[in-house]
């Protein structure tokens, strides 16, 4: 009887433990999501900042044009994985990266402006 109680309490502890662990996991996923939702690239002085941004799979990256001149965000691969419309001052463009990989991009109006998103 004693033994079964202890097993029960162990089981309970295990359940609690699992639950606790689960909560912890959930918490970390939530905070990761919070992080990804604020992943930003700023366009200032004809350059992307940061030039290289590393994000987890599933992250959404938002570009904001803070220049007085319009810019675009266009991936350089042939299939143009992402391509913004023209962003005037303070306009934003977002893209969610669902696959790991390296995504070089540029401003199609000012092609000297280049950047890269690394999705891990």
């Amino acid at each position: 009887m004693r033994r079964s109680v202890s097993i029960a309490s162990l089981a309970a502890a295990l359940v609690l433990g699992t639950a606790g662990f689960g909560t912890g996991r959930k918490g970390s996923v939530a905070s990761a999501q919070e992080k990804t939702s604020t992943m930003e690239v700023k366009i200032d002085n004809f350059s992307f900042g940061p030039v290289t941004l590393t994000v987890p799979v599933g992250a959404t990256v938002t570009w904001t044009n803070r220049d007085d001149i319009p810019h675009t965000v266009v991936s350089t691969d042939d299939s143009k994985t992402f391509k913004s419309k023209v962003l005037d001052t303070d306009e934003k463009f977002s893209f969610t990266f669902s696959k790991a990989g390296t995504y070089p991009y540029f401003c199609s109006i000012h092609p000297k402006m280049t950047g890269k998103v690394i999705v891990q």
């Binding site: 350089t76 070089p104 991009y105 540029f106 199609s108 092609p111 000297k112 280049t114």
Partner: peptide, 11 residues
């Protein structure tokens, strides 16, 4: 016309 099909990093 030299403003079409600009390539990344190019002129």
């Amino acid at each position: 016309i030299n403003v079409m099909n600009l390539k990344a990093g190019g002129l």
